[in-house]
């Protein structure tokens, strides 16, 4: 996406830094990059490997004026951060990028090994002559994407795609298996999954809405919500704390699951919670409205006790 570079350069006239992506020669994919000067911005890219949600950096840069290249889903996280007051609207300049759907680079790495170039110069997925159906390697969240265009932005880049987003996929693999499990089987399932958690907290650090970070209650010794021992029950409790604190706040960007180095399917929990929140409160995080657990007004309560 050639036209991105001049837009970033222009943005740099009014902001301190622009968050975007640059190609990593080692990884063969785009990685987050911070552009401070127009010269640095020459390295900017936008292709199907820009899965990272750069909104994660905004609360850490709250004292700066920041430009950010945002996909539709990233913009929802930015909107959520603004709605919650973690980021000021005037402090961000959003460069809305039209998103073609991001691919799961782990799938490419599984087939071709880490570090093989995944996208060609035109930003199209191309892996060593082998063709892989694009739909097969799309990230789960990109299937049935509800927001290909950013909800907030100051300038847009790229043509809005004329193609409809890939339709929601039939739950496959782990999702299919999970849906069919009994409650007792799920209890065992989570115990198995969390037995490999190492508590690196990449899920938390990669989450744009996990704004407490350094002072996260999971790592507090008092009151000790989760024990320090890295075993399945304690790690499970640690994750439940995170999930619970994201109730009505998670925008479903899937970063926790992407960041998890041991492949725990965290989105099974968050997707479920997001669905329940939408059903109960008619609320989907990432719009202009404040989250339901932040805004309860007793005078306008419409709760149906019999529901």
């Amino acid at each position: 996406m050639e036209e991105l570079i001049p837009i970033i350069k222009k943005a740099l006239e009014q902001v301190d830094v622009v968050l975007g992506w640059a190609q990593s020669p080692a990884a063969g994919v785009a990685v987050p990059a911070f552009f401070h000067t127009p010269a640095e911005a020459d390295a900017a890219v936008f292709d199907s490997t820009c899965a990272h949600n750069l909104a994660v950096y905004l609360p850490r840069l709250a004292d700066k004026k920041v430009g950010i290249v945002a996909k539709g889903c990233d913009a929802r996280s930015i909107a959520q951060l603004i709605a919650e007051g973690a980021v000021k609207r005037s402090g961000v300049f959003v460069i809305g990028a039209s998103c073609p759907g991001m691919i799961d680079v782990k799938k490419a790495w599984r087939c071709f090994g880490f570090g093989k170039q995944v996208c060609d110069a035109a930003g199209k997925v191309a892996m060593e002559g082998k063709t892989v159906a694009r739909e097969e390697i799309l990230l789960w969240k990109c299937r049935g994407c509800r927001d290909p265009e950013p909800v907030i932005c100051d300038v847009t880049v790229g043509e809005a795609s004329s193609e409809a987003p890939a339709p929601p996929a039939e739950p496959a693999g782990i999702r299919k298996r999970f849906a069919a499990m009994t409650v007792a089987e799920r209890r065992q399932f989570w115990q198995d999954q969390f037995s490999r958690c190492i508590r690196c907290y990449a899920c938390r650090e990669a989450c744009p809405l996990c704004v407490c970070r350094d002072v996260c209650t999971i790592q507090a010794h008092e009151p000790g919500w989760a024990g320090a021992a890295v075993d399945s029950p304690q790690s499970w409790m640690a994750q439940l704390i995170r999930v619970n604190h994201l109730a009505g706040r998670c925008t479903g960007c899937e970063e926790c699951e992407r960041a998890c180095p041991v492949g725990i399917p965290l989105m099974l929990l968050l997707e479920e919670q997001n669905d329940v929140v939408e059903e109960l409160f008619g609320y989907r995080a990432g719009g202009e409205a404040k989250p339901p657990f932040l805004t309860f007004d007793i005078k306008n309560d419409t709760w149906d006790e019999e529901r």
Partner: peptide, 8 residues
């Protein structure tokens, strides 16, 4: 409503 997904 979350409990079934959590295995409870």
């Amino acid at each position: 409503r979350m409990l079934p997904a959590l295995g409870i």
